[in-house]
Nucleic acid binder design. Sequence first.
DNA 1: GGCTGTTATGCAACTTGTTGCAAAAGGGGG
DNA 2: CCCCCTTTTGCAACAAGTTGCATAACAGCC
Lengths: 187, 187
Amino acid sequence: MSLPHAILTALLEKPSSGLELARRFDKSIGYFWSATHQQIYRELGKLEQDGLIRALPAGAPARGQKKEYEVLPAGRDALTAWVSGSDAPRPVRDPLLLRLRAAAVVGTGGLEEELRRHLDLHRSQLAEYRAIEERDFPPERDGEEDRLRHAVLRGGIGLETFWTEWLAETLTALGERNEEKERKRRQ
Amino acid sequence: MSLPHAILTALLEKPSSGLELARRFDKSIGYFWSATHQQIYRELGKLEQDGLIRALPAGAPARGQKKEYEVLPAGRDALTAWVSGSDAPRPVRDPLLLRLRAAAVVGTGGLEEELRRHLDLHRSQLAEYRAIEERDFPPERDGEEDRLRHAVLRGGIGLETFWTEWLAETLTALGERNEEKERKRRQ
DNA sequence: GGCTGTTATGCAACTTGTTGCAAAAGGGGG
DNA sequence: CCCCCTTTTGCAACAAGTTGCATAACAGCC
């Protein structure tokens, strides 16, 4: 239910072709709702059929020919309705937590290296978000739109902060355990 | 790729029937990898076909008849391999963040109420996790398995903590804005 | 014996997301 | 002019997750 609304949002910000949307997803909306170009093309087709968007008139529409879309009033209305609707929070779904749980049963075979790898990735994502924050949200910008966009970015920052802290803690906890084992073995 | 491994883990912890698994998912593994009974039955079938688990012998297997499964050595091996494998961190996928972003374009129509509702839900989930922590992880328990399971739980606690803090902050930020508007209107 | 409720397994159809590849247009470079 | 590369759109097949419903055993009850 979310992808069509993600696309409507992106198209309202700026009318675009499928490929442009795919590229923009990769570096902004995709930070919290990713999509492949395939999904995007399919969804654009549906949205057009449902009369929520339309292709901008541009000669003969053909394969390999760029096709720009813009949002129709019905599309804007649908998005507005979705924003003020109500939904359950997404349940957590994380394979890494699952792997830790499995490790409690079959043993941690090299899992620590994986934790360190993830820690690095989350740290660099966090750094990227902080750079965006400094660039796009200086203290003087303070319209309602800015606050909302900033809140979203703070969400990303908060999540990455959580992961870096949790991974660091967990590595410490497992590391200590290993040191204990070493000590016992040497006795 | 994760569901079969979630099931293997649960079955190693205790051999069970499909429905028992579904119930256990609802109150432990499901906290970070949920699954419906449908998914579970389908996956049990596949795992049995692949020779990773087997049904415990119990009379005539028929519809409506309980069928217990246990993990075979090949299943344990597969799980071990998965634990020590490598995977990219899950990209964030959250409709609420998306709705905020959309709200920056079409306006926040009653979205604050939704934020408050989510805040309540996350608070009570957090309380539930903390209760589990006190019950299951007193300071003296400190085997490797306990540390791993505790780390997973701390993950859940950290995530819920993040959400409650972020939601509270965001509500404050939006509230202030509304107060400003009120003030201007009254001038 | 037949009704009802619970436990348990499962099929079918659908939606959403992923992967691999094909096809059309257009722009150089030799 | 032809070949190759890039851009752009798209099909097809699959994997994963959801929803609604059917089926069977069993137990209690009147």
